[in-house]
Amino acid sequence: STVKVRLGHLEVTLHNVSEEDVRELRELWKNGADEEDLRRWLEEWKK
């Protein structure tokens, strides 16, 4: 499914993403990950 995730002022649209992935991303964000960390996660996730 396609999910729009809003993290601060960063809005990311993920395609074919699982609930688990979204949860993981939100956890990262809650734990103080900055945009760099999130971008890195997204790069990994896209592979």
Rank of each mutant, 00 (worst) to 15 (best):
S1C: 14
T2Y: 10
T2R: 07
V3C: 07
V3P: 01
K4L: 07
K4E: 05
V5N: 00
V5I: 15
R6L: 13
R6H: 10
R6E: 04
L7T: 02
L7M: 09
L7I: 15
L7R: 02
L7C: 06
G8W: 02
G8L: 03
G8H: 04
G8R: 06
H9T: 13
H9P: 09
H9L: 12
L10N: 08
E11Y: 11
E11C: 13
V12C: 08
V12T: 04
V12D: 01
V12M: 09
V12F: 15
T13Y: 08
T13A: 03
L14I: 11
L14T: 00
L14M: 06
L14R: 00
H15M: 08
H15D: 06
H15T: 10
N16D: 07
N16P: 02
N16W: 06
N16S: 05
V17T: 02
V17S: 02
V17Q: 01
S18M: 07
S18Q: 07
S18I: 03
S18E: 04
E19A: 13
E19D: 13
E19P: 12
E19G: 05
E20W: 05
D21E: 09
D21C: 08
D21Y: 13
D21G: 10
V22W: 11
V22P: 00
V22M: 15
R23E: 11
R23Q: 12
R23W: 11
R23A: 13
R23T: 08
E24I: 14
E24L: 12
E24S: 14
L25T: 00
L25K: 00
L25H: 00
L25W: 03
R26W: 15
E27I: 07
E27F: 06
L28P: 00
L28V: 03
W29G: 03
W29S: 04
W29I: 15
W29Y: 14
K30Q: 10
K30P: 01
K30Y: 07
K30C: 05
N31L: 07
N31G: 10
N31W: 05
N31K: 11
N31D: 05
G32S: 05
G32D: 06
G32E: 05
A33S: 06
D34Y: 06
D34F: 06
E35Y: 12
E35H: 07
E36P: 05
E36Q: 13
E36T: 11
D37G: 09
D37F: 08
D37T: 15
L38D: 00
L38K: 01
L38I: 12
R39A: 09
R39D: 03
R39L: 13
R40C: 04
R40A: 11
R40M: 09
W41N: 00
W41I: 03
W41P: 00
W41V: 02
W41R: 02
W41L: 03
L42M: 09
L42Q: 01
E43K: 12
E43G: 04
E43D: 12
E43Q: 12
E43H: 12
E44T: 11
E44S: 14
E44R: 15
E44F: 12
W45A: 04
W45Y: 12
W45N: 04
K46N: 10
K46I: 14
K46H: 13
K46C: 05
K46L: 15
K46W: 15
K46A: 12
K47P: 05
K47T: 08
K47Q: 10
K47G: 10
